[in-house]
């Protein structure tokens, strides 16, 4: 079992109804984790629309997660 902290922003925060949650389950990568989260929430965006960060750095969706990591799925950004 893996335990991570998931952060939500913008549309994903609205959909999840929270800015962060601790998630425990059988997932090894952000791609697995996203599938796991989609069973708990109805998100308005798909994995193809998102980037992912682990511990405040962008990473590929197939990187291996570690226990206690902070994972954020990043909706299309709109700064500037």
């Amino acid at each position: 079992m893996m335990n991570v902290r998931v952060r939500y922003f913008a549309q994903l925060r609205d959909a999840a109804g929270t800015g962060a949650e601790d998630v425990t389950g059988e997932f090894r990568t952000p791609a697995d984790l996203w599938t796991h989260l989609c069973a708990r929430h109805v998100f308005p965006l798909g994995a193809g629309d998102l980037r992912v960060s682990v511990n405040a750095a962008y990473v590929p969706f197939d990187v291996l997660l570690g226990d206690g990591d902070e994972v954020a799925f990043i909706p299309p950004v709109s700064g500037g």
Binding site: D14, P75, S78, G79
Partner: peptide
Amino acid sequence: IKDRLPVWKREHYADGTRAWV
């Protein structure tokens, strides 16, 4: 910055609604 800084803009409109851009 516009391509990859993790910042999101929500506009507030004159009619009282708001939306993520």
